[in-house]
Amino acid sequence: MIKLKVNGVNRQFDGDPEMPLLWYLRDDLDLKGAKFGCGMGLCGACTVHLNGKTVRACSTPVSAAANAAITTVEGLSSDGTHPVQVAWQELDVPQCGYCQAGQIMSACALLAKNPKPTDADIDTAMNGNLCRCGTYLRVRAAIHKAAELTASNTTKPATKPVAKTSRAGANLLPRNSGKK
């Protein structure tokens, strides 16, 4: 019996512990956001957060998620208003859209630890997420946009610049992510 938390909900799994997390999320929990692209951790379409860090769900066994908090794209917001989702919509990043949930989850993890990333920071963090349609320029621009949105959301009430930075990053982590 494996206990884990998915998007804030406590779950128990008693199937094959070697089954990749992706199939548990998609087919058992009906969370279809994380996608199957390669099955080998090569494309990043299945990226989710495990205790706040990105993992490739296609090649992470459920057993590796025991007692962990998993966040999928569905856990970012119930209405598409997470700053990263907002930025993605404003810039209309997707073409086919198949890789974008994975791109978004990698972007959230980056912004959580680096609220104002440079192009080089973004490239390093995002290089494991392939986009077959080639939307990289918009993905990068949307990450900058999300950083701005988060900073402006948090600067309104804040007065101390130091608080801005740390809170901006914290805000990008969805609720429940990184916390048991």
């Binding site: 009906d30 969370l31 279809k32 956001g33 994380a34 996608k35 999928t72 794209v73 569905e74 917001s77 209405d79 598409g80 989702q85 993605w88 919509q89 404003e90 209309d92 990043v93 997707p94 859209g97 198949y98 974008q100 949930a101 978004i104």
Partner: peptide, 16 residues
Amino acid sequence: TIGAETKDVVMGKPIF
């Protein structure tokens, strides 16, 4: 115009 299904995409809706 923004993609008709862009919001569904960024929310991970089951559209594929």
